[in-house]
Amino acid sequence: MARLGSVRNRRARVLPGFGLTLGFTLTYLGLIVLLPFAALVWKTADLSWGEFLAKVTDPRVVASYRLSFGTALVAGLVNVVFGLVVAWVLVRYRFPGRRLIDAIVDLPFALPTAVSGIALTTLYAKTGWFGSVLDRFGIQGAFSPFGITVALAFVGFPFVVRTVQPALEDLEAELEDAAASLGATRLQIFLRVLLPSVLPALLTGFALSFARALGEYGSIVFIAGNQPMKTEITPLLIIVKLEQYDYAGATAIAVSLLAASFVLLFAINLLQAWSQRHHAA
């Protein structure tokens, strides 16, 4: 009986070390991810419900939510469009300099965000190369929601390219041939065949880019101008509260931001799972 039992155990666990690695994973996640969250919620709990609601519905805070979510959303959508185009070019065509362009895509990942913030501010300020052109059309480049969106699009861009690229590589060129021989036009092939096939990857890229944009601080503080009620993003407001030693206030805003972005990401994940339901080859 003892022998039988040991045989059964062996069969149950073909790969060794499951217990050890799972234990490590949980401990690591606990320490690195969950513990700070818990501390955040714990600190917020210093406030009563009334105080909490007052802090998170303060007009200046609400204006910052609107700005942060609005610009992150627009930046995410911009990245979806241009990220798809860039990924398409990199996957489908072979041309000199392709590898260089491929490497440049990662630049926003590598650049310290403060550096990119200062560079973008210089370019988009009224006296800058782009800012002066935009000014002629009555658009304020830097120190406006427009400038914030540009900076967010910059930092989130690689996420879309890097998630869509493998999906496009998986897409057989034969699908296009098949659609073409069935009489579809280029536009129909794009809308009915290609886009639905890369949609799950595109949604993932959007979610990553959006989430990154929501929490972005370093590159925004320079280009935003940080005028209360106008160009103040939520992460900046948290820093402002911290500088005023209002820790509970800072964490209250952080918790509400966190909750909102969690709900959004969860929704995107659901959407993604739905669009991917039949993609197992």
Binding site: E172, E174, D177, A178, A180, S181, L182, T185, S197, S275
Partner: peptide
Amino acid sequence: PGERRVGFVFQHYALFRH
């Protein structure tokens, strides 16, 4: 291709997965 009224069958099916 679409105007030739040719039916083409591919080795790896090339079905639209979605």
